[in-house]
Design a protein around this nucleic acid. Structure first.
Lengths: 430, 430
DNA sequence: ATGTGGGCAAACAGCCGACAA
DNA sequence: TTGTCGGCTGTTTGCCCACAT
């Protein structure tokens, strides 16, 4: 097997490097991993959310704070490895981060890595399994367009046309299927080999399978389990309280000593993107003008593994957890959704997740960064929202590494920020 | 179903109270849980070992210490709940501990709870599964004595004698089996229903099943998976480093604030009994006379779920981890085993795990607690072993809550220690 | 275009005693 | 006493098409 995309390189824990294309396909179109070597912002608060989701346990209110731990850490991303759960094939990533000292944050040129959304493979298809697909009575019915697009062409001179397909999953296991074109009317089917795959992966009606035909003419095969309630079992290793403490302690220790630490990012366990490219964060903080009443769009994944935008209105801007994480940008924007489908979308989002709808060009913007009054006439005004603890000022505090929120001292140029990213602040407004 | 032993009481996490008898049978004869309300000693170091075993990852040497966290905490045990993994049926316990202040340690009468070793049920049997037992070709061959002891008697007027058995597992699930006595020569078999159980529990050759006939005339059914290498998957929730930090932080925080914390005890994940009754600890520290060259016995579990004693010799007494956990009694005794079966037994044990072989009565002992020279003539002498950091002196330090190791100030009577437990110290020897 | 169901044959599950260890 | 096997039978698996949506 001459497979260039599967490098049998052993990682810690004796794991092999997974196929990146398949990993991203399984993770979904919205999930992106920052580039190795780039700078990212890490939110312990968001990480905490993921741990809470994975352990099915809320954070105990009595868990102490780490006063030295800010709501976000600017880190160098040293290592990213993609993994998949051995039991469930659930994808996750392991990231090694190193908090940067204030001066280090200014050291080098800051590439404008806004986090390229994961390039979904072009030759692929994803089908949600029907009752017939998962039944032992028959095989898998391949949608016609899908089979013609991603499977090698059949030899139609045979009657019926048949071929053997070999596909590889995230663990580099091989799965063989008989691909036949038959029936009345004619259709593409996977017969022999299909049921062993279904039972091995414990697929049920509603789960999805994913076939990719990659550049090396290999067939890749992934699965996306339907979001079952109570998916992850409560880990009997460590109490959820201790896990939360451990998460905080690890981040605080790494921040204090500027040493590396390791986290797991589980994109499908919770909608909690708690590590984002620094540039994306800066752009959101400096250029995303938000105010109560403002309309916005936000990307969501569809069942067919594509994206669509949902629209909503900003209903408030405030700290999600004023006691534990004051002045955090994490989910600081309260929103209402136009199509409220049983409230399946979060009532709070972060600045960098949304695209505000504005008639003005986004950047460079000739308008001031933040207005004391809503810029759209006729919408609710800002009163009651304490603006000082939000947005730019907070960002500046941690960026400069001292307690002075004075905006006049900002020098993004000196920090290596690309010129187009510099905010044009009308200081007379402040 | 009128089952008095299965109380359908919901716990946090929507779990039910498991059958205690079955839990202990699955945990094995050596595992005991301290009584609720009693006082215990908690060893973060031992807890760390269990987490390391569960995550298959050693503790990173760069993980910082919590200087305020002593190697052992005297705690009040507030709650104990028995659990079993939903996927694997692996038994574990959740314990809520509260570190005691020094003065609280003296407050009340100290019951001499030495940790009653778990009472194994009397009417039960445990069989390791053969290839025939797990094959789909046939059923389960019940050892004759086992069937006659724990199964209801068959009606031998029938030909062949048959009955239906209904057994319940740890999750209170019901399993039905056809119990038949047939073949030439005659033997007891479980036929219909057996293979469903084997595949549901994913039993393979080498695993063990366990049948109990309890006082309520109920049949209970447990499993003991063979110790497979790489059993527990690496939890993708939190890095092992963060888990270790979390464990330490939780203990340190609880100790500092005298607040409760929760831990999981996984008796079969690692041979790491890191929570023991206070009295057992005190007895070991005050009455277990150890010296290099001394012979001892220690209990181990056999394949048939009974106990046997292995013999060994003490080869050294020193800190397991001098840097991180100085003056800890955790595995402070280095030992060599008479029957070294591929080194499957630990090279280090803790004081309270062993029974020293002595011709003298154990307690009350007319002999001094600790001798500067070995009391057995002809054995290696003590030189080279630094005695000051070990044993009694260390214990006194943490018991009194200050740094004074002076032994003269010891007053176990005032602490509520039972009179027979008080050491008779010949101070002229010190 | 594709989900489901009846028909059918092959494979497997599973009950039995025979043997041997 | 009990592990494994050959023989036998009933159930399930799984490939085929028809038919409906």
């Amino acid at each position: 097997l001459s497979s260039a995309s599967f490098i049998p390189q052993t990682q810690e824990g004796e794991k092999r490097v997974l196929n990146s294309e398949l990993w991203h396909a399984c993770a979904g179109p919205l999930v992106s991993l920052p580039a190795v070597g780039s700078r990212v912002v890490y939110f312990p608060q968001g990480h905490s959310e993921q741990v809470a989701a994975s352990t099915n346990k809320e954070v105990d209110a009595r868990i102490p704070n780490y006063p030295s731990l800010p709501p976000q850490l600017v880190c160098q991303l040293h290592n990213v490895t993609m993994h998949a759960d051995v039991e469930t094939d659930e994808v996750y990533a392991q990231l090694t981060l190193q908090p940067l000292r204030p001066q280090e944050q200014k050291d080098a040129y800051l590439p404008a890595d806004l986090g390229t959304p994961s390039k979904q493979p072009t030759i692929y298809f994803c089908k949600t399994l029907t009752a017939s697909d998962t039944s032992t009575h028959g095989g898998f019915s391949v949608p016609r367009r899908a089979a013609e697009k991603v499977f090698p062409p059949l030899d139609f001179s045979q009657q019926p046309p048949v071929q053997e397909l070999i596909a590889r999953d995230l663990h580099d296991n091989e799965w063989k299927f008989r691909h036949i074109f038959r029936g009345q009317p004619k259709r593409h089917l996977l017969t022999t080999g299909w049921s062993v795959f279904v039972s091995a992966k414990r697929l049920v009606t509603g789960d999805s399978v994913l076939f990719i035909w990659n550049e090396n003419n290999q067939l890749l095969l992934g699965i996306k389990h339907a979001t079952r309630p109570q998916t992850s079992m409560p880990s009997s290793v460590l109490s959820s309280d201790s896990m939360h403490l451990g998460l905080l302690a690890a981040a605080a220790h790494a921040a204090a000593t500027n040493s590396r630490f390791t986290i797991f990012y589980n994109p499908r366990a919770s909608p909690s993107e708690f590590i984002i490219p620094l540039a994306k964060y800066l752009k959101a903080c400096y250029y995303t003008q938000v105010s109560v009443g403002m309309r916005f769009r936000m990307l969501f994944e569809t069942e067919e593994s594509s994206v669509r935008r949902y629209m909503g209105t900003i209903t408030g801007i405030s700290d999600l957890d004023i006691a534990r994480w004051p002045n955090s940008h994490w989910r600081s924007v309260k929103v209402g959704w136009d199509e409220s489908t049983a409230g399946e979308r979060q009532p709070r989002v972060s600045l960098w997740e949304i695209e505000p709808l504005t008639t003005f060009p986004m950047y460079p913007s000739p308008f001031p960064l933040r207005l004391k009054r809503p810029w759209t006439p006729g919408l609710p005004s800002f009163h009651g929202i304490k603006d000082d603890n939000l947005g730019m000022n907070t960002s500046l505090m941690w960026l400069r590494g001292d307690g002075d929120p004075g905006i006049q001292s900002l020098n993004l140029q000196g920090m290596g920020v690309a010129p187009w990213m510099q905010p044009r602040v009308d200081t007379s407004m402040l």
